[in-house]
């Protein structure tokens, strides 16, 4: 991204100001001083844990080290252990699948909701927006608890309703009892919580599409699907890609929902995703070295996913 991207970025920063030109000599040290507190906070808040994590991932760091014994530098041992650890690969693949499916479904539903909001009248839209705001504002712990109740084996409304369908036997079906249905519940919960954000963002994008364009397309004989596919989608594409990126990242490091669901279900490793796996390695069994190594892997995966998108965004920027 080095040479070709920098030029337009810099050009943009200085060129679009048609007003009074900024005098170069006026730029004293003030901006730098102003940035200092933020920078310090950032370094302390983000830099320190990150550096600690990188250093620890190369160390044998257990509970003894936590209590003051000097850690031993072990090079890439922790990472080498991971390569040969079947459970780690299982968790990684499971997490990636979970995150891709959940993020994709979230974005699809989010887009549909946005299109719906754009199409309906004001009152209905307001009702939609308010209900989605509620879903979005619901604290994770509260939402998860409600979902645990909904899917409760004995008294859950889901089993009750399904069981009422003739020929379906869902009495006391244990949703949290096997990994497939467990992750289904987790996925539904996370989608429910993240659709509002996606649809608000896309809806904002939709309002930017001028009615003239849509009308012109309609006159030219474009059907509803064609208008959606050929006009709406390309126009909200930048928003869409950033929203999808965010969802992917969030869903990859999902932790609270899985922990709470596991508390209501199984302690078994078959129900772990990366977040709970790291917690289990580090905080629960005291192997902070290995836990840090896994965290670094997650960081790299996140960077890899983001990289694709950042490059895409830059390309679009240039194209404009």
């Amino acid at each position: 991204m080095s040479a070709p991207t920098r030029t337009p970025a810099r050009a943009r920063m200085s060129s679009p100001a048609p007003g009074p030109r900024i005098q170069p000599r006026r730029t004293t040290g003030v901006p730098y001083v102003l940035i200092v507190p933020a920078l310090i906070a950032l370094l302390l808040g983000l830099g320190y844990p990150l550096i600690w994590q990188i250093v620890t991932s190369f160390q044998k760091y257990g509970l003894s080290q936590q209590f003051g014994k000097p850690p031993e530098f072990v090079g890439f041992d922790n990472f080498a252990n991971l390569v040969w650890d079947g459970e780690f690969w299982a968790v990684l693949v499971r997490s990636l699948l979970f995150c891709v499916v959940t993020a994709a479904v979230t974005v699809v539903i989010g887009v549909l909701m946005a299109v719906l909001m754009n199409a309906v009248g004001r009152t209905v839209r307001l009702i939609l927006q308010i209900s989605m705001l509620f879903a979005w504002a619901m604290p994770v712990a509260a939402a998860t608890t409600v979902f645990i109740w909904l899917f409760d084996r004995r008294r859950g409304v889901v089993n009750y309703l399904l069981d009422a369908i003739p020929g379906v036997d869902m009495n006391r079906y244990d949703w949290l009892g096997n990994p497939l249905t467990f992750f289904f519940v987790a996925s539904v919960l996370i989608i429910w919580m993240s659709v509002p954000f996606v649809s608000f963002a896309i809806y904002a994008g939709l309002t930017q599409i001028s009615e003239e364009v849509m009308e012109a397309a309609q006159i030219d004989g474009a059907g509803a699907w064609q208008r959606f596919r050929r006009i709406i989608l390309p126009m909200v594409r930048p928003v869409l890609s950033i929203v999808l990126l965010l969802q992917l990242i969030w869903d990859l490091r999902v932790f609270a929902q899985i922990t709470l669901l596991k508390d209501a279900g199984s302690k078994s490793g078959d129900f772990d995703l990366l977040g709970t796996y790291i917690y289990k390695l580090g905080t629960a069994t005291g192997d902070f070295g290995m836990a840090s190594a896994v965290s670094i892997v997650v960081l790299l995966v996140t960077l890899a996913i983001s990289w694709v998108y950042v490059r895409e965004l830059i390309k679009e920027d240039e194209a404009q």
Binding site: G29, V30, V33, L34, V36, P37, I40
Partner: peptide, 10 residues
């Protein structure tokens, strides 16, 4: 003035 406040905060 802003600069001095910022410096003090830092």
């Amino acid at each position: 003035k802003i600069a001095s406040i910022a410096a003090a905060t830092a």
